[in-house]
């Protein structure tokens, strides 16, 4: 059982589930965005901003951004614990990752509701 204090999920099983649920949400979001852009070859600003002014799209996007935060944390935490053997370097890396995730999340919220 994983008892590492930097593991936010507090258990490997919980990380496993978080990774899969967030993966499915991100897969659906990625497929949606790719298909949307493919089917709108001459996309203009009005259509594009119109899409993101819809409440469902903002909810869908925020769900995806939160999933990115969770997915990236579990993934990069796993990678860092596998390859960074020196505790100080590993903690520093994880701190930078956490800060970047926080910035992306706040940035994403601002893009969706700001301006």
């Amino acid at each position: 059982m994983v008892t590492n204090i930097t593991n936010l999920g507090r258990s490997g099983l919980s990380d496993w589930l978080i990774q899969r649920v967030s993966a499915i949400i991100l897969a659906v979001y990625a497929v949606f965005m790719v298909l949307y852009l493919l089917f709108h070859p001459g996309l203009d600003y009005a259509t594009w901003s119109g899409l993101f002014s819809q409440t469902w799209m903002r909810i869908f996007s925020l769900l995806a951004f939160i999933s990115i935060a969770a997915h990236a944390w579990v993934g990069l935490w796993t990678v860092s614990t596998d390859y960074l053997k020196q505790a100080g370097a590993r903690f520093a890396f994880q701190a930078v990752v956490m800060l970047a995730i926080f910035v992306f999340l706040v940035w994403g919220v601002q893009v969706l509701w700001g301006a």
Partner: peptide
């Protein structure tokens, strides 16, 4: 995020 931010 840059592209999304700028484009919107």
């Amino acid at each position: 995020f840059w592209a999304l931010d700028a484009s919107l």
